[in-house]
Write a protein that binds this DNA or RNA. Structure first.
Lengths: 188, 188
DNA sequence: TTCCGCCTCGGCCGAACGGACGATCCCTAG
DNA sequence: CTAGGGATCGTCCGTTCGGCCGAGGCGGAA
């Protein structure tokens, strides 16, 4: 691991990075002249031909910064309290094309990923496996006839399952079933 | 850091974890009797009163496992090729209530986070504002009659708009409209 | 002014949907 | 053995959906 450059502001970061083309760039967010996120967009953003690996290292862990950085093309996000071990691991990961994010940031990321589950009113009466099969197909826009064909059952059976699903979910038509499926993550 | 127990299968994991209540549990996914994900759900899943911190350690990095684990309540996901450094950091993070995910898994997670945008096939012919109004209501499960009432137009008008939407999106029924609306972010 | 796109309505009709019954089979728990 | 739940099928019936016509008003662009 070799440090090939150290710069003082965002503009310098861009020019030096383009000249030296390092394997990994460590960037702060708060920098003079050019924001760290803008630098990231220029060096690694969507549409860049030879994107560099960028790891954001900052003390600000605001959600807006995190999502902004990751959308800008960053392959890592470290808080400065992470300690040297994680910093080294993050550089190694970035060089390998992977991404390492600070644990305290990751936990919030995961909450965003994991919670589209229980946004739904609850489910006193869970759906059976077969009913979930029907839900998944309905949510994709299949008609009852098509569902019957794909599940190798009769139209009557599909309608029976649909009746149970209506009662359990407390909905009135198939579109509400689809909406529930998308909200609860049954389909994606 | 002290190892208080090591067990051979999922059922044993649950009973020992409940008896000893360790700060952190390391779990494999492939285990006899009880799946690692099921164990996670029992020990740390949604609705558990005193959830334990669970870190999944596995060689299988299939996406279904990752999302399943995180939805089940895991606060970490490590691949067995991560090396001892990351394992230790993951345990520390879990004990602190944070979460550490393997870099090679994180990079895929970030890709899913960074692009919830243009997954839709395209749109040669964009919907008009009025048609979008209809789409939004349809996607929430309203009937044509209800849409007409909420938009202060007649049933015929709603059906006309629906016809245009069908043609523009290339779909065949209202549920596919709803699915498109969810995928494209028109509704959330 | 003459188009053209958008929004607004109406009628007709076949297909699909959803509700309300009842019925059989199988498996598991008590 | 019996009871219950899940999955499977069927019929009847009223409502809704979606397609296919046509028509008028209204605003901007040619």
């Amino acid at each position: 691991m070799e440090v090939v450059a150290a710069v003082a502001d965002g503009a310098e970061a861009v020019s030096e990075a383009r000249r030296l083309r390092p394997d990994v760039c460590l960037l702060d967010i708060r920098m003079p002249k050019l924001d760290g996120l803008e630098v990231t967009r220029v060096l690694a953003g969507p549409g860049v031909e030879n994107p560099l690996r960028v790891v954001i290292v900052t003390t600000f862990d605001l959600d807006e910064y995190v999502y902004g950085a990751l959308r800008s093309g960053a392959t890592g996000f470290l808080l400065k309290d992470s300690g040297p071990t994680l910093l080294i691991e993050a550089v190694r990961a970035a060089a390998a094309g992977d991404a390492l994010v600070s644990p305290s940031v990751t936990v919030r990321l995961l909450q965003h990923l994991a919670q589209p589950k229980r946004a739904v009113p609850a489910m006193n009466d869970p759906l059976t496996d077969r009913e979930l099969d029907v839900v998944r197909l309905i949510a994709r826009g299949r008609t009852n006839q098509e569902v019957a064909a794909e599940l190798f059952v009769s139209l009557s059976t599909v309608k029976t399952h649909l009746g149970s699903i209506f009662a359990k979910l407390g909905v009135r038509n198939r579109v509400e079933i689809a909406a529930w499926a998308w909200e609860s993550g049954v389909v994606s």
